[in-house]
Each structure stands twice: as structure tokens, then as C-alpha cells.
């Protein structure tokens, strides 16, 4: 049995978590204030995930459109994912929630600003 000390990134509270792992499986998460903390603790030990936020170029406006994944994606894919994000351009109009890239590491890459 092994314990890991983590800081939860689920919200600004930053709870100190203790995760107990046995035979490659999470036995317990303590120190969390909410269910998000338990989920983070478990994921972080078994398979860390992160929400990716970035920007893509708006061809007909000359500036950037902020985007994010609509769910967390595997942490080890972040740099590879950035290459795909930076290869994309879009054309306005774009609305919040529009899917820019689908099937993106198990998530969708969505717009987070309205560009009329």
C-alpha cells in the first residue's frame, strides 16, 4: 500500500489530498471538501487529465478566438494537442460553444467567445 499527497486543482480552495493506492487501484481519497476532489485525486494517480485552453486564428478578423476542451484530456497529450490547435484557423461568425475540433482526445475543442 502506498499513499500520495496531492493538491487538488478542482477549484481555488486547493485542498490537500491524501490518496491511498493498492495494487494499482485507488483505495481512498481523503482531505477533499467535495466530490470533485475525490475524482481529481483518483484521476491524478491513475491517469492525470487537464482541461486545455488556447486560441485559434480568426482568418477574416485578424485576431484570436479563445478555445477550450469541453472536458479534461489526458495530460500527456497536451503538447501534441497544441500542435493540432495551432494548425486550425476559423472564420467568423463564431459563437460560444461552437465545436472547432471534434473527437479531440476524447473531448471537443469549443469556442469560448462570440465573434460576430
Amino acid at each position: 500500500m502506498e499513499t500520495k499527497e496531492l493538491i487538488c486543482i478542482g477549484c481555488p480552495m486547493g485542498c490537500n489530498l491524501t490518496v491511498t493506492v493498492e495494487d494499482g487501484d485507488v483505495k481512498s481519497v481523503t482531505g477533499n471538501t467535495c466530490p470533485r476532489g475525490a475524482e481529481y485525486g483518483k484521476n491524478e494517480v491513475l491517469h492525470p487529465v487537464r482541461t486545455l485552453t488556447s486560441t485559434v486564428f480568426v482568418e477574416n478578423r485578424g485576431n484570436m478566438l479563445p478555445v477550450r476542451t469541453d472536458r479534461a484530456i489526458p495530460k500527456e497529450c497536451l503538447f501534441e494537442a497544441m500542435k493540432r490547435v495551432n494548425a486550425v484557423t476559423v472564420k467568423a461568425p463564431v459563437s460560444i460553444g461552437d465545436v472547432i475540433l471534434s473527437d479531440f482526445y476524447g473531448a471537443n475543442l469549443i469556442a469560448t467567445m462570440n465573434v460576430l
Binding site: 481555488p12 482541461t51 479563445p66 469560448t112 467567445m113
Partner: peptide, 25 residues
């Protein structure tokens, strides 16, 4: 907020993690 494209806004207000532009919108 419009340049704060990272997530983490709105957990208290809306119970979800928004980017800055989404919160502003």
C-alpha cells in the same frame, strides 16, 4: 476577463468552470 482565456472562472457563481470570455459573456 477577455484576455483570461484559461478556465476556472465561475465555480461559485455558476457551479461550472468557465473561461474568462465565457464568464464575461
Amino acid at each position: 476577463l477577455l484576455q483570461c482565456i484559461h478556465n476556472g472562472f465561475g465555480l461559485h457563481r455558476f457551479g461550472e468552470e468557465l473561461s474568462g470570455p465565457e464568464y464575461a459573456a
